[in-house]
Amino acid sequence: MPMQDLIRLLKDGKSRSVGMIAAELGMSVEQVQRDIEFLEQNGIIRRIEFSMCGDCSGCSGSSSGEDRKTCPGCTPEGGFKNMGVMWEIV
């Protein structure tokens, strides 16, 4: 039962890449990605969204109040985009 194995695997507190999970469960990377999508869509795991700079008052971008989620003083426009994706169990 691959998805239940995946959920069980995450209970030990370690973090794994998609490739590591595939290797540990003897699945293909595509299958793991499919399971992740399924679990995310059904609210069993969630994608971690990082709000970068909350309401830091020290940066010009956020003090002018336009877009509080990212400010040019702390992060590139639109936040860090190439940090990969992380999921956790809800």
């Binding site: 695997l9 995450l10 209970k11 030990d12 507190g13 370690k14 973090s15 794994r16 890449s17 998609v18 999970i21 992740i36 795991i45 971690i48 940066c59 010009s60 971008g61 040019p72 003083g73 702390c74 992060t75 590139p76 426009e77 190439n82 940090m83 990969g84 994706v85 992380m86 999921w87 956790e88 169990i89």
Partner: peptide
């Protein structure tokens, strides 16, 4: 502590325009 899945992004070429805007923005700031 509970476990996580991390998916590494593929390597790709930098978007120079956005990067430079960030760098200059931050320097000015």
């Amino acid at each position: 502590r509970c476990g996580m899945i991390m998916e590494l992004p593929p390597y790709h070429k930098p978007k120079w325009g956005a990067l430079m805007r960030y760098v200059f923005g931050r320097t000015k700031d």
